[in-house]
Write a protein that binds this DNA or RNA. Structure first.
Lengths: 222, 222
DNA sequence: CAGCATCCGCTTTGATACTG
DNA sequence: CAGTATCAAAGCGGATGCTG
């Protein structure tokens, strides 16, 4: 936790959550809290185990993360975000929005986790016809299963299987995202290894979100 | 530029702007671009000069910053944000919003720069009576001068002196912010070293922004 | 002086091994 | 499972030197 020692709100924020891995730990907790230590470690490939332990102590001391000793039956602790930690969601969403265009060229070296898809999906896609009855799509990639539901104009991803999915898509992450955003048509995606099960027409419900923000030229207004 | 090697939008964003100092370099450019190397160095107390040079190269390569060789008269280069870099503004604003509550206890060790105040001011304060004629307040702290103008419901801070300020406030940063947000009354602030010049009644124009966000409990929706 | 590059001592990181 | 211990390598901050 090295401080920038600058009397500036942005610098103070970075003093707390700017260290390497910190924001990704928050990402994991946002996506699947409450979390055991091992769950976090699985969701953060590449982190050294001692670093994860140290970061969790730091974030706990700063009031971002809370550690609860689980009740007697289980001999383990679970981690959650405090309300203060929850407020980091806006930052994470903006980071995800800014980083989404960098996902075009999937590096073979990159680690993949299905639940990470929840970030771009809710940002990149919306419901084209909110009046129609709700729709559920199940995405399977590797061992991860996530469900995408829509019906109110927005798209809600969550971890876990759907009860009665209208459609099940199985395949590598970038194919799933490509099909949802409409950048890839089904024929191409199937040729690339996508498997579908159910009513593929429900994909028409999804519409890509406008990608670009205005990005005003004026320095720091609004 | 060490990569997390995770196929995730947030991780990809952090691969580019997550390294130490990077976001503060973007802050400086947002606040006062175009910028010479030396201007950046002044606005980033604590950075090693070689690191600043290296980071600027990195950010240029990533398409966030552009370097322009100035026309013949001046023998220096100026740095700007590219449009892609401008889009980081949303992230910086969210960071500033989250970090603002950490500014309560000013550390004597902290470096201060007047223009950093522009961040919390536009986030924390709004115009109480937009119908009234516009108002300009000049803030002086150390060697920095910033002007705060309002008149349309929002508050617009910018660097430099005001033409016809209704009020000039001189003093340490936390007093200036305290008076603007209404957390400090004038009598207390004057006792703490604030100097005022002009019509102090215009301070009634400012109203603190609602501080808290809802911070929903659901993981990553909206 | 502006705009770096080099060197040096220190800290942080990441990989691995080990423990209750 | 949930960490701690160890260690080589990389990164960082500070000082200094070089070039126009």
């Amino acid at each position: 936790m090295r401080s920038y020692k600058q009397f500036c709100a942005i610098a103070k924020a970075l003093d707390v959550i700017g260290d390497r891995w910190n924001l990704l730990i928050v990402r994991e907790l946002l996506l699947q809290q409450p979390c055991r230590y091992t769950d976090l470690h699985k969701g953060l490939p590449g982190i050294a185990t001692n670093l994860l332990a140290e970061r969790l102590r730091d974030l706990e001391r700063e009031g971002v993360v809370s550690r609860e000793e689980a009740p007697p039956p289980i001999a383990t602790a679970v981690f959650r975000l405090t309300p203060r930690g929850q407020e980091l969601k806006a930052i994470l969403l903006e980071l995800g929005r800014w980083g989404a265009p960098l996902m075009t060229e999937p590096d073979e070296q990159d680690a993949r986790r299905g639940h990470w898809l929840a970030v771009p999906i809710s940002l990149l896609v919306s419901d084209r016809t909110p009046d129609q009855p709700p729709v559920a799509i199940e995405l399977r990639t590797g061992e991860d299963v996530i469900t995408v539901e829509t019906g109110d104009g927005k798209v809600h991803p969550r971890l876990g299987a759907a009860e009665k999915p209208d459609l099940v898509l199985t395949g590598p992450p970038q194919l799933l995202v490509g099909v949802l955003t409409g950048q890839l048509n089904l024929t191409t995606a199937r040729a690339g290894g996508l498997q579908t099960q159910g009513n593929a027409k429900v994909l028409r419900r999804f519409r890509p979100e406008p990608a670009e923000l205005p990005g005003g030229a004026e320095p720091l207004d609004e």
